[in-house]
Simulated assay, not measured.
Amino acid sequence: MRRRLPMALFALVAWVLAGCSTATGAAPATPGANQADITFSQQMVPHHQQSIQVANLASERSASEYVKATAAKIVKAESAEVQTMTAWLQSWNAAVLPAAGHAGHAMPGMITEGQVASLQNLTGAEFDRMWLPLMAEHLRNGVAMAKTVLSSGEHAETKALAQEIVENQTAAIGEITAQLP
């Protein structure tokens, strides 16, 4: 009986410790990805979802063909990126953070609820005058997030996506800024 107790105790301790590693919220063991990669996708998904939300307003409210075309490009590109990052998070057993609601607006780099409400109440040229600088700033925040993961991430696909975001959104910011009065 005494010989079985240490072995049973060892098995119990091993089982408890194995369970604790995921129960405490520690990052899952992810080949080729580190916490910076996970955090990037967890933050960029709601950031992109908000871009899509604000860009979709342009199709209904904008008077500018440029704003409508830019918004459509944002929706197309960022929808695909959201799907990619969501799949990564799921494969890493990491939480996909909600986009909607008050929590998303509190995250750094997000458009405030008041700004979204203002956009929802504007049309035509007034909408465009608010949308352009707001979207440029939102994209700047996305570029900053992407640059962070480029310097601290390990997942090759995440870093490749981050590089695309830096290049594409920097170009979009330049185009949007050129349209500002």
Rank of each mutant, 00 (worst) to 15 (best):
E154M: 12
N141G: 15
A106S: 14
V166D: 08
H48W: 12
E60A: 12
I74N: 14
G109S: 11
Q49L: 13
S59C: 00
I74Q: 12
P98L: 00
A36H: 13
P28R: 07
Q49Y: 03
E65L: 12
A58E: 07
E78N: 13
T39Y: 07
A160D: 14
S51P: 05
P31Q: 15
M145A: 14
W88H: 15
A95D: 13
T22L: 05
W131V: 01
A171H: 06
G101N: 00
T177Q: 11
F40A: 03
H102M: 06
H105W: 06
N121W: 04
H48S: 09
A100V: 00
I111C: 03
Q43K: 10
R61D: 02
W15D: 04
Q120V: 00
G142R: 14
V166T: 03
E65Y: 05
E157D: 15
T170H: 09
A36D: 14
A178S: 15
E113M: 10
A69Y: 07
P28V: 01
H47N: 07
A69V: 04
V67I: 04
S79G: 15
W92K: 10
M107R: 15
I74Y: 14
S79D: 13
T158Q: 11
E157Y: 05
E154I: 01
K147A: 09
Q53D: 09
A55Y: 10
V75P: 09
S51E: 14
K159E: 08
N34K: 10
E65A: 13
M85C: 12
N56I: 01
A55W: 10
L89Q: 09
A58G: 06
F10S: 11
W131P: 01
Q35F: 10
K68F: 13
Q169K: 09
N56T: 03
G142K: 13
Q163R: 08
Q42S: 08
A106Y: 03
K76T: 03
L161P: 08
T158C: 13
Q42P: 10
E137T: 12
A178C: 04
E65I: 01
R61N: 08
A103W: 01
Q49W: 05
Y66S: 12
R3C: 03
L119G: 02
A160L: 12
K68H: 14
L119T: 02
R3I: 02
A146Q: 14
A58H: 04
A160S: 13
P98K: 05
E167M: 06
A72Q: 14
L161T: 02
M110Y: 05
E167H: 09
T112Y: 00
A27H: 05
L5D: 14
Q35C: 01
A55F: 11
S59M: 05
V96L: 06
A125H: 05
Y66L: 11
T112S: 12
L17W: 07
E137A: 15
A18Q: 02
Q115Y: 07
T84R: 13
A106D: 10
E126C: 06
S64D: 12
P98D: 04
Q49C: 06
A178W: 06
V75M: 09
A100P: 00
E137F: 08
S59E: 08
T112P: 00
I52H: 07
A125N: 08
P133H: 07
E154Y: 07
